[in-house]
Amino acid sequence: MTPVMEVSALTTIAFWAASAMTLGFAAIVVTQRDVFRAAIALAGSFLGVGILYFVLSAEFVGVVQILVYVGAISVLMAFAVMFIQDIASGSRPAQGRLVGVAAAVLVFAALAFTAYNTEWSSQNELSPDAVVALTEGYYEVGEGDDIRVELTEPAGDNDVVVANGGAFVESTGAVGVLLVREYMLAFEIIGLLLVAALIGGLLLMRNPPSSNKTEKGDASV
């Protein structure tokens, strides 16, 4: 069996290219004075992050990143930008620069601290069996506290056998199962929140404060 996640030179090249794309466009976003150009560059940066997810075999997250961030949020930003005056000369420089710098340093420190303190499991530290189990799936045999992991389905066994897809093979299915089983409550609450936001938006649109009462009666469309 060939390990699926062996890091090849092509993967490394793709990783650095996508990283360069993300950081390069992000640099354009903060240095460009033309706000519309900055919005388009932000879309490019989002796209770079999406490609990074693909390089890491997280296809589902990568596609959703492109669908939501590049396809929807960037469009929303470009739209909002059109309501800003003086697009070509740029918006006024932000007033609280010190606060901005402090916030940026704090966010960076938090991210760096988390990344530094996470135990990254490299493939070199795993046993070959563990790599196969992670990439091609494994079977949990037994019940309760007495569970052992096998790479092949045990034949002629009375134990309970649960088949698991490999983490890298079936990430889409795994996300789906986690969403509707383990994180069902969070999923539903987010759905409720979005409905509330939609209704709030509709309410704001339907009753502008300046409208007088005679017009209100006709608003039945």
């Binding site: 296809e59 589902f60 596609v63 492109i66 669908l67 590049v70 396809g71 929807a72 889409t172």
Partner: peptide, 14 residues
């Protein structure tokens, strides 16, 4: 791709 349909939606949204 195992997310083929979603990929099509994502790409057309660009």
């Amino acid at each position: 791709l195992n997310v083929g349909v979603l990929f099509i939606m994502a790409v057309t949204s660009l």
